[in-house]
Design a protein around this nucleic acid. Structure first.
Length: 189
DNA sequence: AGGAAGATCTACT
DNA sequence: GTAGATCTTCCTA
């Protein structure tokens, strides 16, 4: 399978969010590979998006949102880390990875985040970062390099596309900016 | 220096 | 369905 290159992320944020569905997210820890199929994403823009972390302008903690597409932006909400991928054509924007369907390293993920049901392992943005052992250390990482600890592979994937408003957002935009795979049990509730 | 808010999750009723 | 836990960053609301 092919590694997704920087050109893939250098497109409109909402299109990249939609196209990331079905791709394979890989987290490498030493020789072990953990990860799975992306089944739920949300697009966040910049200055015109009140729900975005970039809304109030460039700060120390969010500066990677204003930088080159194809890098990770990681930040904290409540007690959890959120995994975002930078993608834009106009200087700022990113995509929140909300859920994956686990396919690789499931036992290792269960050790990172004990879950009774497989279905609960990575079906939410805070859950999947725990399962994949992702935190602030990986902020700014280039994911277009397969020698790094996180990268994304292209994948042929047939699915029915669902859209909705973003979840947990107090001031949302009128457009549907959440994308998910219909009838997939790993999509968050 | 301190409190509030937040792109959440779990555990309880 | 609702409460509470509890982390990082921001702003003095």
């Amino acid at each position: 399978m092919q590694l997704l290159k920087r050109e893939f992320y250098s497109r409109r944020t909402d299109l990249v969010a939609r196209d990331l569905l079905g791709k394979i997210l890989v987290r490498r820890i030493g020789d072990a590979k953990l990860g799975g199929v992306i089944v739920e994403t949300e697009a966040y823009f910049g200055r015109d998006d009140p729900a975005s972390r970039a809304f109030h302008g460039k700060k120390t903690y969010n500066k990677v949102m204003f930088e080159e597409p194809g890098h990770l932006f990681i930040y904290n909400v409540h007690k959890y880390w959120m995994l975002n991928i930078i993608a834009h054509t106009d200087g700022v924007g990113g995509i929140l990875i909300r859920a994956i369907e686990p396919t690789k390293g499931i036992e290792a993920m269960k050790r990172n985040r004990p879950a009774k049901q497989l279905q609960d392992l990575t079906s939410g943005p805070g859950k999947l970062t725990l399962a994949l052992d992702v935190d602030k250390r990986l902020n700014g990482l280039d994911i277009t390099d397969a020698s790094n600890q996180i990268y994304v592979l292209d994948n042929e994937f047939e699915c029915e596309l669902g859209t909705s408003h973003r979840i947990g957002v107090t001031r949302d935009l009128p457009e549907h900016l959440r994308f998910y795979v219909k009838n997939n049990r790993f999509v968050s509730k």
